[in-house]
Design a protein around this nucleic acid. Structure first.
Length: 594
RNA sequence: GGCGAGGUAGCUCAGUGGUAGAGCAGGGGACUCAUAAGCCCUUGGCCGGCGGUUCAAACCCGCCCCUCGCCA
C-alpha cells in the first residue's frame, strides 16, 4: 500500500559548521530512510532547515561584530553546500527566517492561546541599563553561588558543571560591556504543559511498544515521576519571531517553541513552491500518513513531549486560523528514532577544541559514500558510538572495497572481457544459480524489514553479508575454470552474478547512493536510481533565502530483485571505491585538537 | 537529586530464560576472474560486580560500580 511518509529532520543551529557527529545523529539516517521509502514507492517528503534564531546566533554575531542575519546566512549556505555534496536528499531545506515560517509559528501560538493552553506570568530578569535591554542568561557572568567560581555564566557554571539560576548569580556583570545589570520584572507567556499532560501520556502509551527504549522510557518516566509544568515560550530579544499579541511586539517567541514548528511550516513552503498550496495536507491532515522525526538524543524531550503537546493542543484550531479549514487535526509523530552520540577517538566531540571531524573538510579529501558507509555501519542507534580514523580506513578497505566493490569489479570485468560488453544469455539456470538468487530475494524482505524499523545498521550488515554470499557463490562456481571447458556454464554463472549485483545495488542504494548510481549507469540503465538535488533562491518580505530542493522526475527501479535481460549492453566497469593508505589514519588523527 | 540508556571475544557490536554469536584484527590453507581482492579452516569470552528467583539466567528481580543523555 502506498503511504505518505514525512521525514522530519533536526534543524541545525546556523551558528556552527556541521560535523560527523551531527551527520550520523540525524541527517544521514533521515536521508537513508527517505531513500528507502522512495524505492518502496511511497510518497516521501523530507524537510528541514536552518534554525536561524536563538541566542547562539546572536552571541556569534556579537563576537564577530556582524548581524544575526549575516551569521545565519553564512552558515546556512555552508549547510546547503555540505548537504548537496553528501547527498542528503531534502525535498526542502529552508530556514526559520522566512515570512511563511513566521506566519505558521504565530498561528500555532495564537491557536494554543485560543485553546487556553497559554498563560502570562511575570518573572525577574537581568536588565542592562547601559544597553537598555534584557540580557539572556548566557550574557551575564558572575560568581557561582554553588562553588564560588568567579567566571560562571548565568545559565551554567563551567567549573562545577551545575546549571544555575541566573537571578542568583553573585556580583553579576554584563558579558557585553562589563556593566552591572539589575533585576527587573518582565512578563512572559508560558505553554501550559500541565494541562496537556494527559494527552501526552496517552500519545506516548499508544507508541510504547515500537519506540526505541531510551526515547519512550525517558519521556514517559520523567512525566510520571515529576509531572509536566509550564514553560516560558517568549523572550526579551530583538532577533526572532514577534509575539503576535497587542502590546507584546518587542518580545520574541523562544526558539525551542518556534523551531519545531518548522516541520510544519517547511512542508507548507514546499507545497507552495511545488505549485499546489494544498499538498501539505496530504501529510499533516492525513491520519494514515506517518511522520518520523530524526534527531539526536539531546533533543528527545522537545520531539517526544513538547512538540506533540503543541500539536495535540491546537487540535483543529490551527487549520481554522490558518486557512479557515477546521475539519482536521494535525498528525502526531509516528516515531522519533533518536540516535545517541558519536564520540571522537574515545573523547567527547568538541568544536571549540577542534576535537572534531568537520563535514565539508572531510569531503574535501574523501568521497561521500565511504563516509556514509562508515557512519551507518557504526551508527549510534542503541548507545554512544566512537569515530576512529583507523576503523574508517579498515572498514573502507576491507568491507566497502574488498567485499562489495571488488565483487562488482571481478564480475563485470570478467564479463566485459569474455562476452564483449553484453550480458550473457544463460538459457536455463541450474539449481545452484536459482539458490543464490533466492537468497538475494529473501534479502529484500529481510533488509526491507530492518530498514522499515529504522534499524539501519543491521540492514547494512545484512546487505554486506549478502555480498559475501555472492562472493562465495562465484568461488564455488569458478567461472574462470568453467570458461575453459564450457562457456555456456560460465555464462550461467556470470549472468546469475550480474543479476545478484544488480539486486544488491538496490539494497545498498539508501546508504550508498553515489556509487550505486555509478554502478546503475555501468549496467546500462537510462533512467537514474534517484532524482537530483538543486538549490534555488526564494524572495519574500524578509529578504532572499536560498533553499535546497529535490527534483521530481522519472526514475528507475523499485525495491525488488533485478530483472536485467540477457544480451543487453553494459560498460566497462570502473572501481566504485578507492583503497586508502593506512597511513592516512595517522595523518588524520594528528590533525585533531590542533 | 530525579528520569532514562549502555556496560558481551583484542576492537566494533548482535543476541532478552534452555549447550555463548558476527565482522574486523591474529594464526593456517587451497585458488587466481578481481582494487595482493575473494574463498576455506582456526585461536580467542567466569556475557561490569555481589546477591536472589528458576530444573535452567548474558537475558527476570534487588543492591552496587563505571560511561553517557535529559530534567531539577
Amino acid at each position: 500500500m502506498k503511504r505518505n511518509i514525512l521525514i522530519a529532520v533536526a534543524w541545525p543551529y546556523a551558528s556552527a559548521d556541521i560535523h560527523v557527529g551531527n551527520i550520523t545523529g540525524s541527517y544521514l539516517p533521515a536521508d537513508i530512510y527517505a531513500r528507502f521509502h522512495r524505492l518502496q514507492g511511497n510518497d516521501v517528503l523530507m524537510v528541514s532547515g536552518s534554525d536561524s534564531h536563538g541566542t547562539p546566533i546572536t552571541v556569534r554575531a556579537d563576537e564577530d561584530g556582524s548581524t544575526p542575519e549575516e551569521v545565519y546566512q553564512r552558515y546556512h549556505k555552508r549547510f546547503l553546500d555540505l548537504f548537496q555534496k553528501l547527498g542528503l536528499s531534502y525535498d526542502l531545506f529552508t530556514s526559520t527566517h522566512t515570512e511563511n515560517h513566521f506566519r505558521v509559528a504565530q498561528t500555532m501560538f495564537s491557536a494554543l492561546k485560543e485553546k487556553g493552553y497559554m498563560y502570562a506570568e511575570t518573572q525577574e530578569q537581568w536588565y542592562s541599563t547601559s544597553q537598555e535591554r534584557f540580557l539572556p542568561d548566557r550574557y551575564v557572568e558572575g560568581t557561582c553561588y554553588i562553588c564560588g567560581f568567579e567566571n560562571a555564566r548565568g545559565d551554567q557554571c563551567d567549573q562545577c558543571g551545575n546549571l544555575l539560576e541566573a537571578n542568583e548569580l553573585i556580583n553579576p556583570r554584563s558579558k557585553m560591556d562589563g556593566s552591572t545589570p539589575e533585576l527587573r520584572d518582565t512578563e512572559h507567556f508560558y505553554l501550559d504543559l500541565g494541562a496537556l499532560q494527559s494527552k501526552i501520556v496517552d500519545f506516548l502509551k499508544e507508541r510504547e511498544d515500537y519506540w526505541r527504549p531510551n526515547v519512550i522510557r525517558q519521556s514517559l518516566g520523567q512525566i510520571l515521576a515529576e509531572d509536566l509544568h509550564g514553560r516560558a515560550i517568549t523572550r526579551d530579544l530583538k532577533w526572532g519571531i514577534p509575539v503576535p499579541v497587542n502590546g507584546w511586539e518587542d518580545k520574541r517567541l523562544y526558539v525551542w517553541f518556534e523551531a519545531v514548528i518548522g516541520y510544519l511550516s517547511a512542508t507548507i513552503e514546499w507545497a507552495a513552491l511545488s505549485g499546489d498550496e494544498e499538498l501539505w495536507k496530504d501529510w499533516w491532515y492525513n491520519s494514515d500518513s506517518r511522520v518520523y522525526y530524526f534527531i539526536g538524543k539531546d533533543n528527545i524531550p522537545f520531539h517526544a513531549v513538547i512538540w506533540p503537546a503543541e500539536l495535540a493542543g491546537v487540535g483543529n484550531t490551527f487549520g481554522a486560523l490558518f486557512d479557515e479549514d477546521d475539519k482536521h487535526n494535525l498528525v502526531l509523530p509516528y516515531d522519533v528514532p533518536a540516535n545517541e552520540f558519536l564520540n571522537m577517538e574515545g573523547k567527547k566531540i568538541s568544536g571549540s577544541r577542534n576535537w572534531v571531524v568537520d563535514g565539508l573538510d572531510f569531503l574535501s579529501r574523501y568521497d561521500p559514500d565511504p563516509l556514509r558507509y562508515y557512519l551507518t555501519a557504526n551508527m549510534p542507534e542503541t548507545r554512544d558510538a566512537d569515530w576512529e580514523w583507523k576503523e574508517f580506513v579498515t572498514r573502507n578497505n576491507n568491507e566497502l572495497v574488498a567485499t562489495w566493490g571488488n565483487l562488482v569489479n571481478r564480475v563485470l570485468s570478467f564479463a566485459h572481457k569474455q562476452w564483449e560488453g553484453k550480458i550473457p544469455d544463460p538459457g536455463d539456470l541450474r539449481p545452484e544459480d536459482e539458490a543464490i538468487l533466492e537468497v538475494i530475494q529473501k534479502g529484500f524482505k529481510k533488509a526491507g524489514d530492518l530498514y522499515n524499523r529504522v534499524k539501519l545498521r543491521a540492514a547494512l550488515t545484512e546487505t554486506m553479508h549478502l555480498a559475501g554470499e555472492v562472493n562465495k557463490y562465484i568461488d564455488n562456481q569458478a567461472p574462470w575454470f568453467e570458461i575453459k571447458e564450457d562457456k555456456d556454464a560460465a555464462g550461467k554463472t556470470i549472468f546469475t552474478a550480474i543479476r545478484a549485483i544488480d539486486s544488491l545495488k538496490i539494497l545498498f542504494a539508501p546508504v550508498l547512493p553515489f556509487s550505486c548510481e555509478q554502478l546503475h549507469q555501468t549496467l546500462g540503465y537510462n533512467k537514474p536510481l534517484f532524482e537530483e538535488q538543486y538549490t534555488e533562491s526564494v524572495d519574500d518580505n524578509l529578504g532572499t533565502h536560498e533553499v535546497l530542493r529535490y527534483r521530481e522526475g522519472e526514475v528507475c527501479c523499485e525495491w525488488q530483485p533485478s530483472e536485467i535481460s540477457p544480451g543487453s549492453p553494459f560498460r566497462e566497469p570502473q572501481p566504485l571505491f578507492q583503497k586508502l593508505d593506512p597511513e592516512v589514519a595517522d595523518e588524520e588523527y594528528n590533525r585533531l585538537g590542533k
